[in-house]
């Protein structure tokens, strides 16, 4: 018991003393996940709006696939992308393995289905008169999408935040593709795994506390957006 509380006290000491190693890891995590969530939103939101507002062959299959992909295991994404980006893989020539960029690609693949699916929900939850209003005002398909983005903006921001929560907390992609290189690809989750296996429990715990803090802030922002939406 003493061991745990001692480690917890040391963890807070690391946080309060602004330990540079801890904060570099936090910054790396935030940077990678923020870029991933913006990139995934650029793909997921338009796809979500298109899926919600248009009928096309295979739509029900797409919806079923999206629901399945919402719970895509991170290690599976890591494994497949490792095969793609490793030297012998089809994109091995790009030399992207063990870089922050490839973690971003992996996290994008993880969270695009989430943002896509939640954007469909957001568009469907919009007032049923909105689509006809857009048409009546003479909006083309792109303009209609843009008006929808404006009207369901809070729900879309909530989708982005949920995606961010998934990205910042995942370990499989970051570990398998990033290689846990200090100062470059070491994220909070990979560092926690590494430091704990090395026996530096207090360091892992400090990062765990910061990860929980980020999750808490993210959820607080999410709740705020949801309150605005109501």
């Amino acid at each position: 018991m003493n061991y745990f509380f001692q480690a917890l006290a040391d963890a807070f000491s690391l946080i309060v003393s602004l330990d540079s190693e801890v904060y570099i890891i936090v910054w790396t995590s935030l940077k990678i996940s923020l870029v991933a969530v913006f990139a995934a939103s650029l793909v997921g939101i338009p796809l979500g709006l298109y899926t919600a507002l248009r009928e096309f062959p295979g739509k029900s299959f797409v919806l079923q696939m999206l629901n399945t992909l919402m719970a895509l295991p991170t290690v599976v994404v890591g494994l497949v992308l490792y095969g793609v980006f490793t030297r012998q893989g089809p994109l091995g020539g790009l030399g992207m393995l063990y870089t922050a960029e490839v973690i971003i690609v992996g996290q994008c693949i993880l969270i695009i289905p989430i943002i896509w699916n939640l954007s469909i929900t957001a568009a469907k939850a919009a007032d049923p008169r909105l689509a006809d209003t857009c048409k009546a005002l003479g909006a083309n398909t792109l303009q209609q999408g843009w008006i929808f983005v404006g009207e369901v903006r809070y729900a879309l921001m909530a989708a982005m935040i949920i995606g961010f929560g998934r990205a910042i907390g995942e370990v499989g992609v970051a570990m398998m593709l990033g290689g846990n290189i200090e100062g470059f690809t070491r994220t909070m989750t990979t560092a926690i795994a590494l430091q704990t296996s090395k026996g530096e429990f207090e360091f892992g715990l400090a990062l765990g506390v910061l990860l929980m803090t980020v999750a808490f802030v993210v959820n607080a922002i999410l709740q705020w957006f949801q309150s605005l939406n109501q």
Binding site: R129, L130, D132, T133, A136, G138, I147, G150
Partner: peptide, 16 residues
């Protein structure tokens, strides 16, 4: 559509 203007029974106004 751009030559006509249609007002629904309960018109929807954008949140602005």
């Amino acid at each position: 559509r751009r030559r006509t203007a249609y007002i629904q029974q309960k018109p929807y106004l954008l949140n602005t």
